[in-house]
């Protein structure tokens, strides 16, 4: 077998093993589309998950939570200003 073929075979083997080991990493990054929040990020009550404008969970709820927990709130990104500009 020529050297080039051996290198290609070795690369293919490495790629296959990398793919196999990354399978778990791929499934772990699945997005939960059930609407009840994200896999582990949007835990109710912690910032990022609060501004669910579309679902009508809206700002008021977030606002009440913020007032009850001074010191966190907007600064940590509860109702972030959309930064499009």
């Amino acid at each position: 077998m020529c050297v080039r073929k051996r290198i290609l075979l070795l690369l293919a083997g490495l790629l296959a093993s990398a793919l196999l080991t990354s399978c778990e990493a791929v499934t772990a990054q699945h997005i939960d589309s059930s609407g009840s929040g994200f896999q582990s990020g949007g835990q109710p009550g912690d910032g990022g998950g609060r501004v669910r404008g579309g679902a009508g969970q809206g700002m008021d709820r977030a606002w009440q939570e913020d007032e009850s927990r001074p010191g966190f709130g907007g600064r940590q990104g509860t109702v972030r200003n959309p930064d499009n500009k």
Binding site: I31, S33, S40, G42, G48, G49, G54, G77
Partner: peptide, 26 residues
């Protein structure tokens, strides 16, 4: 494997709402 937060999470959440529940109430 960073998860989205803030607006990034919100826009993704809205995309899912529109895609799976046809929800445009936002």
């Amino acid at each position: 494997p960073r998860l989205p937060t803030d607006d990034s999470q919100t826009v993704l959440s809205l995309a899912l709402d529109m895609l799976y529940r046809n929800d445009y109430s936002s």
